[in-house]
């Protein structure tokens, strides 16, 4: 197996705040990496650095052998990195199918409108939104919007998917479905980095886990190694709710 994404010493600052502090890790092609850490640890910010939203960061990010640090988001997208946002961002006044067609038409594949629409229909069917295709995206409920966010990202047939808390707010049944989608992606050779607070879900599906705290990587390893790491437990103890969850579920 080969390394598809390599994050080296990545640092992002907002004024005096160091949101991501020299984060370093590799992701192997075709695996699922769980990225966990308390709220405000810098996980979303790290995603923003990877896909070019914050393209002036320290350190370097290499994707598929080429440095992508400093590229604009659209160039990053063209190389095959897609993103599902923590806070869903549907294109509200467009139909569901149009939203997903946008993902297919302009990403890595740069398809014609007709071909993009076919891919979009396929993705909607996969994520169970086929019957909502012609509805305006604004009219969907929250769980549906989450699936739409993922469908749009997947429509570009990405090589790397950055999934930011796509499970948050879903019921157990829906969580199970989503995990199924991630496993299927992995079996197709797609690499996934998922930020998640639902510990049992991350631990269940991830091949490896990276833990961030105050912007720093404090642990990395297999799910078992990480859950038994005292540093990780300590980090979460700062956040009583999550500590409780870990002791319950982990």
């Amino acid at each position: 197996m080969s390394v598809i994404l390599s994050v080296q010493n990545v640092t992002v600052r907002f004024g005096g705040l160091v949101a991501v502090d020299a984060a370093t890790f590799d992701v192997e092609q075709g695996t699922i990496l769980g990225l966990i850490g308390p709220n405000g640890a810098g996980k979303t910010t790290l995603f923003n650095a990877i896909n070019g939203v914050y393209n002036r960061h320290g350190g370097s990010i290499v994707f598929d052998g080429a440095r992508i640090s400093g590229l604009r988001p659209y160039d990053v997208a063209k190389r095959g990195i897609a993103r599902a946002h923590q806070i869903v961002r549907p294109l509200n006044d467009l139909s569901v199918i149009a939203n997903v067609t946008v993902g297919a038409a302009f990403g890595r594949e740069d398809l014609s409108l007709g071909a993009a629409r076919k891919v979009a229909e396929e993705r909607l069917a996969w994520l169970g939104l086929a019957d909502r295709a012609e509805v305006l995206a604004a009219k969907l409920n929250v769980a549906q919007k989450k699936r739409l966010e993922l469908a749009r990202a997947l429509a570009s047939k990405p090589r790397l998917l950055l999934a930011d808390e796509v499970l948050a707010g879903l019921n157990p049944q829906e969580v199970g479905d989503m995990l199924g989608v991630f496993r299927q992606l992995r079996s197709q050779g797609v690499t996934v980095v998922m930020i998640e607070h639902l510990m049992h879900a991350v631990m269940n599906v991830s091949d490896r886990v990276v833990v961030l705290d105050y912007g720093k990587k404090i642990a990395e390893g297999s799910p078992q190694e990480v859950t038994n790491d005292p540093k990780v437990i300590e980090a979460y103890l700062g956040d009583p709710k999550l500590a409780a969850r870990i002791t319950e579920e982990g």
């Binding site: 939203v53 988001p73 160039d75 997208a77 961002r89 294109l91 467009l94 302009f106 749009r152 570009s156």
Partner: peptide
Amino acid sequence: EDQDVAMIVGIR
């Protein structure tokens, strides 16, 4: 609808 999202999906 959202220029930032447009960029993230690959539109310049």
